[in-house]
Simulated scan of single mutants.
Amino acid sequence: MGRITFYEERNFGGRSYDCSSDCTDLTSYMSHCYSCRVHSGCFMVYDRANYMGSQYFLRRGEYPDCMSMGMSGFFRSCRMIPMYRGSYRMRIYERENFGGQMYEMMDDCDNIMDRYRMSNCMSCHVMDGHWLMYEQPHYRGRMMYFWPGEYRNFSNMGWGSGMRFMSMRRIMDSWY
């Protein structure tokens, strides 16, 4: 079980809101959220309501200013990431709708170009585990959270057409 506290102002000032589950719109509790503390668990926070926009992965710790994390606005929604202790398995595909080259992964990959000679990852099927995928090699750039399911087209996930990923890592239970 995770717990996060959001604060209206930077450096944990102003009113606060404690959260232990998913929240589609934090502005229904306070006008804006510029800082937070993760007391336990892991969360994805979003700069738009309904889990849209840019995503940021947070684990236990203090985050005194969302702007220093690269956010253009403030925290608008959050999703708790459940702890997972099983195996990890994901198939990545070079093209949308599971087209092109396919590789099955069971561990982190800091650069799909180096490991698989694959220039794009534009769809995936997560069979086991929870994953973070990054738009650039070496876990850089925008990230997106994936849980078990089929993801045929990343462009319909709020980032526009042509979204692709170049590195991916497992969300491990040791991060909690």
Rank of each mutant, 00 (worst) to 15 (best):
103 Y>W: 11
5 T>L: 01
134 Y>K: 08
110 D>P: 08
23 C>T: 02
109 C>Q: 09
54 S>N: 15
154 F>I: 12
173 D>F: 10
172 M>C: 07
50 N>V: 10
96 E>M: 14
154 F>L: 14
143 M>D: 01
72 S>H: 12
162 G>C: 03
126 V>I: 14
64 P>T: 12
91 R>E: 12
46 Y>A: 01
150 E>R: 15
10 R>P: 05
128 D>W: 06
97 N>E: 11
51 Y>N: 01
42 C>F: 06
17 Y>W: 12
49 A>Q: 09
92 I>A: 08
136 Q>L: 13
62 E>I: 05
135 E>P: 00
55 Q>F: 00
22 D>S: 02
104 E>Y: 02
115 R>M: 12
149 G>C: 06
142 R>S: 08
23 C>H: 12
105 M>W: 08
141 G>C: 06
63 Y>W: 02
119 S>N: 14
155 S>G: 15
102 M>C: 15
32 H>G: 01
104 E>H: 09
173 D>N: 10
176 Y>L: 07
167 S>P: 01
62 E>Y: 09
145 Y>T: 03
167 S>V: 04
47 D>N: 13
137 P>D: 07
100 G>S: 02
18 D>F: 10
66 C>R: 00
14 G>K: 04
105 M>F: 00
127 M>L: 13
85 R>N: 13
159 W>R: 15
89 R>N: 03
33 C>H: 01
22 D>L: 05
92 I>N: 05
124 C>H: 06
160 G>C: 07
7 Y>N: 00
35 S>Y: 02
47 D>Y: 01
